[in-house]
C-alpha cells in the first residue's frame, strides 16, 4: 500500500488505462510537458509521448468536438476542460451533440469518452473559477456524471469511466487535489453507479458528494461526540445513480441530510429528496434537509467563500438543530 494524493491519483488512473488500451488518448490545454494546470497529468507526456498526450489551443469547443468525433470513429479520448466553469463556452458540444447524438441516430453512434474537469471552490479563485457544476451535467439526458471524493476512488472510477461505452463527465474537486489516501497494489477498477458508505450510524444519514464527503465525515465525528450517530453515503456517481444504497441507508436511520457544494436551486440533492420522498416517505422520521452553497455566485475572499460552501460547522449545526427540533 502506498499513499497517493488525489492529483497523483489522476495521472495514476490515466496511466493504468493508457497502458492497457492504445485507443485511449488525451487532449487538453497544458496537459503535455507542463503536466496540467493542476498537475493532474504529470508524467504522462513522458511515458506516452506527444501523440497520445496532446496539447491543444484554448479552444474548448474544438477540444470537446475533437473528442466526440474521435470517440465516434474508434478512439477513447479523455479530454480536459481546465475549470468546469469553462463548460459554459462549449456546452453545445456536451449537451446537444455528445449527449443527444446516440439517441437521435437510433443508436448508430456511441461516444466512449471522458471529459475531466477541475470543479468547485475552496481555492479563493472567485466566481468564474470555483463553481460546482455537477447539477449542470446531471440534468442532461445522455451524460454520465462521476465525482470521486478520494484518491483511491479517482483511480477506480477513472478506469470505469474510460472503459464505459458512454460519455462520462468526470469532475475533480479542486479542493481535494492535495488530499491523500491509501492506494492498494495492482489494477483498481470500480463500477459506475455505485455509492459507498464510508461511515455507518444509527441516527441520521448524511448524503454527500465530492469535496463534501470528507466534510460530512468530519461533521459525523463531531456529531458523534454530541450523541448523534451518523451514516455517511458517498454518492460518487450522479448518473447512473445508486438510489438503492441511498434509500436503504436513509430508511435505516429515518433522516436524510444532503451535503451539496452546488448552488441551491436544482442541486442534485433536490432530485434525491424527491426520490426518497416518493419511495421511502414512511421510513422518514423528520424532514429531509439540504445543506448547500446558497444560491449565489461564489465570492473570492476566504472569509466569504468559507461562509458559502457547506463547512463542517454548518453541517454539525444544521443536523443538531434539525434533530433536536
Amino acid at each position: 500500500m502506498a499513499q497517493l494524493t488525489f492529483r497523483e491519483a489522476i495521472a495514476h488512473g490515466l496511466a493504468q488505462e493508457m497502458r492497457r488500451d492504445p485507443s485511449v488518448v488525451m487532449i487538453g490545454e497544458d496537459i503535455g510537458a507542463a503536466g496540467g494546470v493542476f498537475k493532474g497529468t504529470v508524467g504522462l507526456f513522458e511515458e506516452f509521448g506527444p501523440v497520445r498526450v496532446r496539447d491543444t489551443p484554448i479552444s474548448e469547443q474544438a477540444i470537446l468536438g475533437a473528442a466526440m468525433g474521435a470517440a465516434m470513429t474508434g478512439l477513447r479520448p479523455v479530454a480536459e476542460v481546465m475549470f468546469s466553469d469553462f463548460f459554459a463556452v462549449c456546452w453545445d458540444i456536451v449537451a446537444n451533440e455528445i449527449a443527444k447524438s446516440r439517441y437521435m441516430t437510433n443508436g448508430q453512434v456511441s461516444f466512449p469518452l471522458v471529459i475531466r474537469s477541475g470543479n468547485g471552490g475552496g481555492l479563493r479563485f472567485g466566481a468564474q473559477h470555483s463553481q460546482s457544476v455537477e447539477n449542470w451535467a446531471m440534468m442532461v439526458p445522455g451524460l454520465k456524471v462521476v465525482v470521486p471524493s478520494n484518491a483511491r476512488d479517482v483511480i477506480g472510477l477513472m478506469a470505469a469511466a474510460i472503459r464505459d461505452p458512454d460519455p462520462v463527465i468526470f469532475l475533480e474537486a479542486k479542493a481535494l487535489y492535495p488530499t491523500k489516501s491509501e492506494i492498494p497494489e495492482g489494477e483498481i477498477l470500480d463500477t459506475l453507479g455505485t455509492a459507498t458508505v464510508p461511515r455507518s450510524g444509527a441516527d441520521a444519514t448524511l448524503v454527500a458528494l465530492g469535496a463534501m464527503v470528507p466534510r460530512a465525515l468530519a461533521a459525523a465525528e463531531e456529531l458523534a461526540e454530541q450523541g448523534i450517530d451518523c451514516t455517511v453515503v458517498d454518492v460518487r456517481s450522479l448518473v447512473p445513480l445508486d438510489t438503492q444504497t441511498i434509500l436503504r441507508e436513509v430508511s435505516a436511520t429515518g433522516r436524510m441530510f444532503t451535503v451539496e457544494e452546488n448552488p441551491r436551486l436544482c442541486g442534485w440533492g433536490a432530485e434525491l429528496s424527491s426520490i426518497v420522498t416518493e419511495e421511502a416517505f414512511y421510513d422518514l422520521d423528520g424532514p429531509i434537509v439540504r445543506i448547500t452553497t446558497p444560491h449565489i455566485p461564489l465570492p473570492a475572499a476566504d472569509a466569504l467563500e468559507d461562509l458559502a460552501i457547506p463547512s463542517v460547522e454548518r453541517i454539525v449545526e444544521t443536523v443538531v438543530k434539525s434533530m433536536n427540533s
Partner: peptide, 21 residues
C-alpha cells in the same frame, strides 16, 4: 456521420474524426 443543427458544432466534430483517422 450525421447532420448537425447547431451552427458550427460539426466543424469541430469533423476535426475529431479526422484526428482519429
Amino acid at each position: 456521420m450525421g447532420s448537425y443543427a447547431i451552427i458550427g458544432a460539426h466543424l469541430v466534430i469533423a476535426c475529431g474524426a479526422a484526428w482519429s483517422a
